[in-house]
Amino acid sequence: MMDSLILRTATRLLLSLMLLFSFFILLRGHNEPGGGFIGGLIAASAFALHSIAFGPRALRTVLVFDPRSIAGVGMLCAIAAGLFSAVMGDAFLTAGWLHWGEGDAVFHVGTPLLFDVGVFLVVIGAVLTIVLALEEEDV
């Protein structure tokens, strides 16, 4: 934890901005540069920054859930995305899609999105598990 007023003030603002950005990166990843890995890393850095500014205890309050649980939920999302097709009789992890609209204005949503959300959560969870455990070392 760094006791710096500038860092703390900036972090308050940056955390929400970076989190918002990470969601944006996650969701647009299928069509533009981005995706679960990148989004997850951005969100993780945002939280890590917060923990440097305010300490691990504050970060745990912000996170609500233990990072290990976040990683676990991420794994479950990714596996669930795969099981969906397995239940439908296809090979494990075959993508399933729903489409709305016509022509160029089609909106696609499918299991790869759930899978990418899983990747996103696992990266956040794993990174923060390590960061928090290290930060809490000499508390």
Binding site: F37, L41, V123, A126, V127, I130
Partner: peptide, 9 residues
């Protein structure tokens, strides 16, 4: 990402 995990460990 994996080598990052390995390094952290």
């Amino acid at each position: 990402v994996i080598s990052f995990g390995l390094l952290a460990f």
